[in-house]
Amino acid sequence: MIGGYVGSSVSLQCRVEANPRPSVYWTHSHATRLQYGSKYQASMRSEGYRHWATLQIHNVTRDDIGAYTCLHENALGKGRADITLYTLASTTTSTMMIDPTTDQVTTTLEDYLEISSVEAPTDHVAADLGEEDPYVVVLSQHQMQSFDPMPSS
């Protein structure tokens, strides 16, 4: 999984080990091949039998979230890798907090936001947090300061 901000650009990378050099193409949500142009740009870098295929997605929108598949093949075989893109949204200086003992929603300062610690939000609050879109993550400004959208493995 990789996160990106709405309006920004993200890079998805697929590592392939193959000889001879494979052909690589990308799909979104198991559809047909992506059409490369101003929205999507594909590239590949190779060192011997190791290859790194990259898909750049420009101006990320909610339509771009979901599953991407890197499909690769050569004369000796084929393979695939799946990557899920989710969007990130940052809150402003105040946001909601749920008191788990009373289920009351209050507005708090960013330093006190701990939405991730609420295990089962009520239905009316879950809708405000993007329930209709399971790939959206809401972070406070405090959480954004230490967030790394591409953690090292």
Rank of each mutant, 00 (worst) to 15 (best):
C14I: 08
A18G: 05
N19G: 06
P20G: 08
P22C: 08
Y25S: 11
Y25I: 04
H28T: 00
S29G: 04
H30R: 13
T32M: 08
L34F: 03
Y36K: 01
S38W: 03
K39L: 04
Y40H: 06
Q41W: 01
Q41R: 12
A42E: 13
M44F: 02
S46W: 02
S46Y: 04
S46K: 02
E47R: 09
E47V: 07
E47G: 02
G48N: 07
Y49N: 10
Y49H: 06
A53Q: 03
A53L: 03
A53S: 15
A53N: 01
T54K: 08
T54I: 14
L55P: 00
H58A: 13
N59A: 10
N59Y: 06
V60L: 15
R62A: 15
R62D: 15
I65G: 04
A67F: 09
A67S: 12
T69Q: 13
L71H: 15
L76Y: 13
G79C: 10
G79A: 07
R80C: 03
A81Y: 10
A81T: 14
D82P: 00
T84N: 07
T87C: 07
T87E: 10
L88F: 06
S90T: 13
T92M: 12
T93N: 11
T95I: 01
T95F: 14
M96N: 09
P100K: 04
Q104G: 03
T107G: 02
T107K: 03
T108A: 13
T108S: 05
T108G: 01
Y112Q: 08
L113H: 10
E114T: 10
E114D: 11
I115K: 04
S117D: 08
V118M: 07
E119F: 08
E119S: 13
E119A: 13
A120T: 13
D123A: 14
D123T: 12
V125F: 14
A126H: 01
A127R: 14
A127F: 09
D128I: 07
L129A: 09
G130N: 07
E131I: 08
E131T: 05
E131H: 05
E132V: 05
D133Y: 12
D133P: 00
D133F: 10
V136I: 15
